[in-house]
């Protein structure tokens, strides 16, 4: 038993150590700013600016969260406050199932549905030409992917609000909307925040679905309808050509390191907010 526990502690330590030593080597060679804020990615001539990927990941994830957040809030409120038992019994397993669907299927839906929509309807509407493989398509697919996860956590948080609080508000003559907004949501604010931070982390590392609908062009994103690249798609794309430049591999490891650090930071932040919330509830 102890052995298994030790193993679980060793895995992230080993990952941090390997990625950390690789990226430290690169930073020592090229300088931290040149890597993280450098805009030129030319591995063959030894220029490893990761900024296009960092910017791409951030833009796509933020957009996805902006799309998913309002819808997830509606569904979560509906599930915990409005839905009858029968509806809940159908909807809840469905949400669980959707949360477990492989990302390839989300990517496939993106190619079949979102990409043609952006190419033939949305982009011409704004007078732009687009292949459909774009930042906005990736954000839509990613937003859809994090939706079920957000709904799961948020409705869980809403349900942990004591029924007595709702009843007290009703007895004072509050309408249902007032109870939901001023009691349930207000009490769950920290939980909603924590859920979104967690989902942000999840979306930030998503690889295959994003790769399928984003295209792969290394540049700082300039238009919603243009293509881009993200940190995970850099790693997946570089597969097979790992050793063309001595520092190339280290640059890829640095990209992985950035991903890892972001995930750990966001998980920690979410945890911190959650414990604050729990303390407030007791």
């Amino acid at each position: 038993m102890i052995l298994s526990v030790v193993m679980v502690i060793l895995v992230p330590a080993l990952m941090l150590w390997i990625l950390g030593s690789s990226s430290a080597g690169l930073f020592a060679d090229k300088g931290f700013a040149a890597i993280v804020f450098g805009e030129t990615w030319k591995p063959l001539s030894g220029r490893f600016g990761l900024f296009p990927f960092i910017a791409g990941s951030t833009v796509v994830t933020l957009l996805a969260m902006a799309l998913a957040f309002p819808v997830s809030l509606c569904v979560a409120i509906y599930l915990s406050e409005y839905a009858s038992k029968r509806v809940t019994a159908i909807l809840r397993p469905l949400v669980d199932l959707l949360a477990g669907l492989p990302s390839v299927l989300y990517g496939m839906w993106g190619l079949l549905f979102v990409v043609p929509f952006i190419r033939d309807a949305a982009a011409p509407f704004f007078g732009l030409a687009s292949t459909g493989l774009s930042i906005i398509s990736a954000a839509m697919v990613l937003g859809l992917m994090v939706l079920p996860v957000l709904v799961q956590i948020c409705s869980e948080v809403f349900r942990s609000v004591p029924a007595a609080m709702r009843e007290a508000a009703f007895s004072l003559g509050a309408t249902k909307a007032e109870v939901v907004l001023r009691v349930v949501c207000k009490k769950s604010l920290a939980g909603i925040l924590a859920a979104n931070i967690l989902a942000f982390g999840r979306a930030f590392g998503e690889t295959i679905a994003v790769m399928m609908v984003l295209g792969f062009s290394v540049r700082v994103p300039d238009s919603l309808f243009g293509s881009g690249a993200t940190l995970p798609s850099l790693l997946a794309n570089a597969y097979g050509e790992m050793s063309s430049h001595p520092l190339y591999e280290k640059a890829l490891m640095t990209a992985a390191m950035i991903l890892l650090v972001v995930i750990i930071l966001f998980n920690g932040l979410s945890r911190f907010v959650m414990t604050r919330l729990r303390r407030g509830m007791e």
Binding site: P12, I18, L19, L235, L252, A256, I263
Partner: peptide, 14 residues
């Protein structure tokens, strides 16, 4: 929870 959150591509790269 952190291990769950780490993108699988990072596991792959390591």
């Amino acid at each position: 929870d952190i291990l769950w959150g780490i993108p699988t591509i990072v596991y792959g790269a390591v």
